[in-house]
Simulated scan of single mutants.
Amino acid sequence: MEIKNMKSMDPNLLLSIVNMKLRDEFESLDDLLRYYNLKESDLTDKIKEIGYHYCEETNQFIGC
């Protein structure tokens, strides 16, 4: 499953994939967004649906 299909993806699955990529492949959310050519609001809004937000200090999405 590709992040590029995030609009149709279950937000829980998207959260898992994004956090894994942030942990293993990207040093920041900006790096991930640039690599996949995504708008930050599209990604963060989708993940906010399940109560998570990006934490720059830990470089991951965490629950509110």
Rank of each mutant, 00 (worst) to 15 (best):
M1N: 03
E2Q: 12
E2A: 10
E2D: 12
E2C: 03
I3G: 02
I3V: 14
I3R: 00
I3M: 02
K4C: 00
K4P: 00
K4M: 01
N5V: 03
N5M: 06
N5R: 06
M6P: 00
K7P: 00
S8R: 09
S8V: 03
S8E: 14
S8M: 04
S8H: 01
M9R: 10
M9H: 06
M9Y: 04
D10C: 01
N12M: 11
L13N: 12
L14T: 09
L14Y: 02
L14P: 07
L14S: 08
L15D: 01
L15H: 11
S16A: 11
I17C: 01
I17F: 01
V18H: 00
V18G: 00
V18R: 00
V18T: 13
V18W: 00
V18C: 01
N19C: 02
M20D: 11
M20I: 08
M20W: 02
K21F: 14
K21H: 07
K21Y: 13
L22H: 01
L22G: 08
R23Y: 12
R23L: 05
R23H: 13
D24G: 03
D24A: 07
E25F: 05
F26W: 01
E27F: 08
E27Q: 12
E27T: 08
E27V: 05
S28Y: 05
D30F: 03
D30R: 15
D31T: 04
L33F: 06
L33H: 04
L33R: 02
R34S: 13
Y35H: 15
Y35Q: 15
N37E: 12
N37H: 11
N37S: 08
L38H: 09
L38S: 10
L38I: 11
L38E: 10
K39S: 12
K39G: 11
E40N: 07
S41T: 08
S41H: 10
S41V: 07
L43N: 06
L43G: 04
L43H: 06
L43V: 09
T44D: 04
D45V: 02
D45A: 12
D45M: 07
K46S: 05
K46E: 01
K46A: 06
K48C: 01
K48A: 15
E49Q: 15
E49H: 03
E49L: 02
E49N: 13
E49Y: 00
I50Q: 01
G51R: 09
G51Q: 07
G51V: 04
Y52H: 14
Y52D: 04
Y52F: 14
Y52G: 08
H53G: 10
H53K: 15
H53R: 13
Y54K: 07
Y54A: 12
C55H: 12
C55S: 14
C55M: 10
E56T: 14
E56N: 11
E57D: 14
T58S: 14
T58F: 02
T58A: 03
N59R: 05
Q60I: 02
F61T: 02
F61D: 10
F61C: 08
F61M: 09
F61W: 05
F61Q: 12
I62V: 14
I62E: 11
I62R: 15
I62F: 01
I62K: 15
I62A: 04
I62Q: 13
G63W: 05
C64T: 14
